[in-house]
Amino acid sequence: MRQIIFILLMTILSTACRETQVEEFIPALLSNPGQESHAEIQQTISTALNGVTVMLADDVFTMNSVLVIERGMQRGIDRPPEMGRDLGRPSRFQLVTNGTECIIIDEQSSVHWPLARVKCIKEE
């Protein structure tokens, strides 16, 4: 029984690991822009950032495969300005394809998320 559990555990972990192994990723652009794909991208980026609120442009990933995310723009008096002297860097994500799926990848950690409702084409 323990052997079965061990084999199952290793299988699960191997499957999980497969998603973070290096694959042949090609930078891609969104080919089906619209509410459905935008919502999935927004949800994915939010998940990647531990569920925080994220605002994206309507044309996200249609002109560039790289998406730069930073702290929300301070465009109102009810919020403070940016750090003013920010020593950090923004987060960067890229839309890529492995030929069959469209995937968002965190450039720093290489963690990635396959997208179900997004279609994409190779970025020229």
Binding site: M55, A57, G72, M73, R75, S91
Partner: peptide, 10 residues
């Protein structure tokens, strides 16, 4: 902690 695409706001 709210984030946005660089340059994007409402």
């Amino acid at each position: 902690i709210a984030q946005s695409q660089s340059g994007i706001s409402s």
